[in-house]
Design a binder for these strands. Sequence first.
DNA 1: CGGTGTCTTGAATACCATCAAGTCTTGTGG
DNA 2: CCACAAGACTTGATGGTATTCAAGACACCG
Lengths: 253, 253
Amino acid sequence: MNVRPRPVVAELVTRQTPPPCAACAVYDFGICRAASPAWALQPGEPFEFQGSGHTVPARRVVFREHEMTEAVPVICEGWAASTVMLSDGTRQILSFLLPGDLVSTALLFDAKANCSVEAITDVRYRTFNRAELKATLLKNADLLERLSKAWIEEKSRADQLIVDLGRRTAEERIARLILNLKDRLALRGMVRSEPMEMDFPLRQHHIADAIGLTPVHVSKVLSEFRHAGILRISDRSLTILDFARFRRIALMR
Amino acid sequence: MNVRPRPVVAELVTRQTPPPCAACAVYDFGICRAASPAWALQPGEPFEFQGSGHTVPARRVVFREHEMTEAVPVICEGWAASTVMLSDGTRQILSFLLPGDLVSTALLFDAKANCSVEAITDVRYRTFNRAELKATLLKNADLLERLSKAWIEEKSRADQLIVDLGRRTAEERIARLILNLKDRLALRGMVRSEPMEMDFPLRQHHIADAIGLTPVHVSKVLSEFRHAGILRISDRSLTILDFARFRRIALMR
DNA sequence: CGGTGTCTTGAATACCATCAAGTCTTGTGG
DNA sequence: CCACAAGACTTGATGGTATTCAAGACACCG
């Protein structure tokens, strides 16, 4: 079994200076380009933003629920999760954050988030200043457009998750989670095809916390998928072997 | 057992002309006052908006998923639900809409909703024109403020529901749903105290569809609450008899 | 006055959780 | 570099929560 080297993310974290935004694979994808005036960037100026770049190792908390902050973070590289903890230790993951994602559009208007953000892989992110971003928003129709798109998608994904949790079985939920992640990664050019393969740094407990199951049950369902020849997961990489069948499970109803 | 007359809402629906917004109990509560320029209203002008008032009888659909529309509806009176239907007939209620609620802040930016809206009681609502509302938004800091608040609350409630569906038992979910509705009604001055009582037009199948259970199980849990002396439900009215205990169930973790 | 919608209750069943033991991998300090 | 601990995953046995199925009571409406 070929053990692949540590993921690309980890290399970057060890660099002294983060790469400029111009080199970012998702600079055009999210709000970054449209919002760059909020980084006090002049058109044509090299993309070097002092002090707004951060790195966080895997499993560390980026920020905590109810923490006040002026910073509005955008994920540059790596995977993160926004989570809610209950007093008995159980956890719910509200959404996974991928490169280019604004952590939460609500953070634009409220300094207090209602969830924590946790790094899954090593994560690199940058932050906007809320006041500056808001000011830019009112002068920049393109940014407003991008943000409203982000808002609509954020809400739509939350609504989808509600339907999944309320009305679908474990198999359906897992299939839908993986296919959603596949679609989002594909938009970022992060999915290989033939065979359909992608980086998959999630532990089974992440999946469990995201779709309201126990890690044990997630393991059992994934084993089924594996034995049925639908999926292959190894070395933090996931391959969809039987896409048609997998899709049928996800869209069962 | 005293059978109360049909709820106030029904009376209003039978009127020929809807009451002016000035008479609305929640005119100041939601976005209506701040957004009134989008109704082409001059300050001091009597609140009479031609053509923007609608009434819908209970159980009728206000608008359907994926329907395109320029209208951004606000509930004036009555209860509604935003719902998603699955192909096998099961249904998920994403949220209940109360007087003063914008149906969805996402409708401000996208003409296509990802859920349907259904009247629970007879409902009276008015609509803004999206383009006009958007234009007003950019010239009116107060409106932006109100909308961002609505947006944050909408998302926060969706996130809460995700946690409830993913990580809580039937008892907790039902208690939390009822207490959330109580809080929202209280903000609107629609809850009596001593004893704590409110209009409660939901059928048990509404509750079931909202929190991912079956009507049968909802019935069993509500019966428990009733026999334990915690709740009383009759004549579409709900009384919380043992608030402390009920709250403890809702906040169990 | 039958039809429809709502609610209740009981019995049988399905799905997922919990508990437990064991394997394998990963990370860490001696 | 090895030993050990911690984390991640698997698998089986058992149990609990909620679903499904079914039958009946009741209210409301046309």
